[in-house]
């Protein structure tokens, strides 16, 4: 049987080697854990940012629409109910939409005149699925021809979303009972982080900026 004998110096070197290897393995493990995570840590703060998502109907020529009407409230949709809100932020958001529509050449309809486009704004606080009867009756104070066709909307939205919807009141389909949405702008992330009224109105402006197609010649 072969035996290997170590003197005290060799034994000490052997221990040192093992200690260094152990430390190396520990260091590698920690470095691996810290440096090799796939996702950067700073992505967390993306959730606190307001994102603006817009979509317009690519088949529509907005130049064929000249007038619009806008509600005087924002419809707040929660799990429990749907209520109109008219607080300071709601008024500022509606005024900003108004300002942008006029800057794009659209003319606000007088209350007695049938508009080409109707604008409604929703704020989805914490709901996943909702049902909504689009109330275009308000746009037709003297034109109740289409009443009581109430198209039903079923939609699913994430929390903290403001949705601006531009409905085509010029081309309502009375047979299918449909009102077409020609432009929709969503401002996401309202329940995360801290957002002032001016932050939100700046995003309303952004929604228009990123939709240059939404304009008409007066």
């Amino acid at each position: 049987m072969n035996r290997k004998f170590y003197n005290s110096k060799q034994y000490s070197n052997n221990i040192n080697m093992k200690a260094k290897l152990g430390l190396l393995i520990l260091g590698v493990g920690m470095a691996f854990t810290l440096s090799c995570t796939k996702y950067p840590a700073e992505t967390d703060r993306l959730l606190e940012d307001l994102a603006v998502i817009t979509q317009y109907d690519t088949k529509v020529d907005f130049n064929t629409y000249k007038t619009y009407s806008i509600t005087s409230y924002i419809m707040k949709v929660t799990d429990k109910d749907t209520i109109p809100i008219t607080d300071q932020t709601a008024v500022a958001v509606l005024a900003e939409i108004d300002k942008n529509m006029q800057a794009r050449g659209f003319v606000k309809s007088a209350s007695a005149v049938k508009p080409d486009l109707g604008i409604e704004v929703f704020y989805f606080e914490n709901t996943t699925v909702y049902t909504y009867y689009y109330d275009y009756w308000g746009y037709y104070p003297y034109g109740g021809y289409y009443y009581p066709y109430y198209p039903v909307y079923y939609a699913s939205y994430t929390t903290g979303l403001a949705s601006i919807q531009l409905m085509d009141l010029k081309n309502v389909d009375p047979v299918k009972q449909l009102i077409y949405c020609r432009w929709n702008a969503g401002i996401r992330g309202l329940l995360t982080g801290t957002h002032t009224t001016s932050d939100i109105t700046a995003r309303v402006d952004q929604a228009f900026i990123q939709t240059p197609q939404l304009q008409t010649t007066p």
């Binding site: 691996f32 440096s35 090799c36 995570t37 796939k38 950067p40 700073e42 992505t43 703060r45 993306l46 940012d49 307001l50 994102a51 603006v52 998502i53 817009t54 979509q55 317009y56 109907d57 690519t58 996401r188 952004q206 990123q210 939709t211 197609q213």
Partner: peptide
């Protein structure tokens, strides 16, 4: 193992054929 990353504030991405535009801070 390597990772390169950068955050960009308020950039706009578009999907022209669908009429979609997204503006947000992104990573």
């Amino acid at each position: 193992w390597q990772r390169v990353s950068e955050n960009y504030s308020q950039q706009t991405y578009t999907i022209p054929d669908k009429g979609i535009a997204i503006n947000a801070e992104n990573c």
